[in-house]
Structures are given as C-alpha cells and as structure tokens.
C-alpha cells in the first residue's frame, strides 16, 4: 500500500500547492521581510545594512511607544472582557433555552450586524456619541439631562463602546459551540446529587465551556489590538493605538525599519498575551482530569 499512500500524498500536495504557494509568497515572505527590516538601519525613506538592534532599543527609550502599546492593550483587554461577559449569557440562552429548530435563526440574527460595513458601523457610533449627537439630543429631549454628555470627548470610553459593539458576534459563536457540546445528562446528575442550579452552572457548565470562552477571548483580543479605523474615527486621531503608530512610522515618517520593529514588537506582545490565555486554559483543563 506504500505506493498508493505516496500517490495520495502527491495528489494532496498538488492540490494544496496553489493556495499554499499564494500564502507563502504574499504572507510568509512579507512577514519575514518585516522581521528582517526590523533589525536593519533605517532612516527617512531609506533602509540598509548594518544589522542593528537600535530600533528595538528605541522602543524602550521613547515613552510614546510604551504608552501607546499599553493603551492598545488596555483598550483591547477591556473590549475583550466586555464582549465575552456580555456574550456568555446570550450564548447560554440560545443553547439552553431556544428550541433546536430556531437556533440557526438566532445565530443568524446575532451575526447579521457583523456583516454590515465596518466603517459605517464605527462612524455611526461617532454620530451617536458625539457632542449634541443622537444620545445627547435624545436624552435632552426627554428631559433626563440638561447639558450634552459629549461621551465622544472621552476617547478611551468611546473606543471601548464602539469596539465592543463591533466584535460582539465574534464572542458569541465560540461560546455557543462549546455550550452545545456540554452533555446535558451531566447537568441533571449535578442537580440530582443536590447541587443548586447556580452551583451546577459554576462547577459543571462553566468549566466545560472554558475552551469556548478562551477561543472567544482570543478571537476578540487579537483583531482589536490592531484596529485602525476606530482610533481614527472615534478618537479623532488624538488617542492613537498601535496600528496608527505603525502607519505613521511607515508612511508619514517613512522609517520602515522602525515601523517594522513596532510591528514585530506588537506581534510579540499579542503572541505572548494569547499564549498566556491558552496556557491558562490548558492548566484549567489539566485540573479537571
């Protein structure tokens, strides 16, 4: 059978090669280039030898880099927390309290907003939260407040609200999938053995769905760290996040070496935080066995 196995492997490789070569050329090669650029000597519009670590040293010396990185982490961790905490009950509701024939419809309803133009959704929050915008004018009209709240002037809060809305469906789906996998007889057993509903949830359901929660955390955390549109439209460019910093370094200051170093550092930080979540999950599951 060895020859037929060899033939199968050849067919598999032949089939995978168009998409794999595409990804190698347009993804792996560019990422490798950024990695190399980050240790080259750069200047305004130029880049070259010798190899140096000064780009990374600069990241530690200039406080702007650290403050933007910390701000990005703070915003995306806050957004991750809010979306996951808000998403869990809704996923629980659809999984446990909606009849099976209607589950697909509910998921469809939850995912529709995600498929509508991202730029428009973000820009809408600007008109909703802005000075004398929709929230202000509505509240003044019904007499709750006299002075405009102007939530938009609080850039961080507005960004967290906007991003939490934008990434909400991302968090619901993985949690829903893990809830669907929970063996319902375990819950009955828990209650038969005298646990309350709440305790059954905390001691059985929640631990079993932890992988889904971690997946939700990662799927929200990773793209929000790199968000560019929200800081521009909502923060008005005054509260840049890491993506805006990369842009200005690469395209405005045109120092590709320094820009690459920021990108590499950002990937490193994102990777590290993700790894922590994954390890937490593993440890959590390890304790169960």
């Amino acid at each position: 059978m060895a020859s037929s196995q060899g033939k199968e492997a050849r067919t598999g490789w032949l089939l995978i090669s168009p998409p794999a070569i595409y990804a190698l050329l347009l993804l792996a090669a560019p990422l490798a280039t950024v990695l190399i650029y980050s240790v080259l000597t750069g200047g305004r519009g130029e880049i070259g030898l010798p190899f140096t670590l000064s780009n990374f040293a600069e990241l530690f010396q200039k406080p702007i880099y650290q403050s933007v990185m910390l701000r990005s982490l703070y915003v995306s961790l806050a957004v991750t927390f809010v979306t996951v905490v808000l998403a869990y009950p809704i996923a629980y509701f659809v999984s446990f309290h909606v009849s099976p024939s209607k589950k697909a419809l509910w998921l469809f309803l939850i995912t529709i907003p995600f498929w509508t133009s991202y730029v428009i959704r973000v820009a809408l929050w600007r008109t909703i939260l802005g000075y004398e915008g929709i929230v202000d004018s509505a509240l003044i009209n019904i007499g709750v407040i006299n002075e405009p709240l102007n939530i938009l002037s609080n850039g961080m809060l507005s960004m967290i609200i906007t991003l939490s809305h934008a990434y909400a469906p991302f968090a619901v789906l993985p949690i829903f999938v893990s809830l669907e996998k929970v063996d319902r007889s375990l819950l009955e057993a828990g209650q038969d053995l005298g646990e309350s509903r709440l305790m059954t949830f905390i001691r059985v359901t929640l631990p079993l769905t932890m992988p889904g929660v971690i997946a939700a955390v990662l799927i929200v955390f990773i793209p929000t760290v790199g968000d560019y549109v929200t800081p521009e439209l909502i923060g008005g460019g005054k509260v840049p996040l890491i993506a805006n910093l990369i842009e200005s370094q690469m395209l405005k200051i045109r120092d590709q070496a320094q820009g690459s170093a920021i990108a590499v550092a950002a990937m490193f930080v994102v990777g590290m935080v993700s790894l922590v979540f994954v390890l937490l999950n593993r440890r959590f599951l390890g304790g169960q066995k």
Binding site: L27, P30, I242, M250
Partner: peptide
C-alpha cells in the same frame, strides 16, 4: 495553518508587511 494565519494576525500588520514588499 499558514493559510489560516490572517485570521489571527492584526490586519494592519498583514497590510504593512505586504506594502513593504
């Protein structure tokens, strides 16, 4: 894994890497 990487990489980094090349 390589093909699926763009799902777990901030899009800004994908865009900038492509732009540089």
């Amino acid at each position: 894994g390589l093909i699926m990487v763009p799902l777990v990489l901030p899009e800004m980094i994908v865009a900038m890497a492509l732009l540089v090349v």
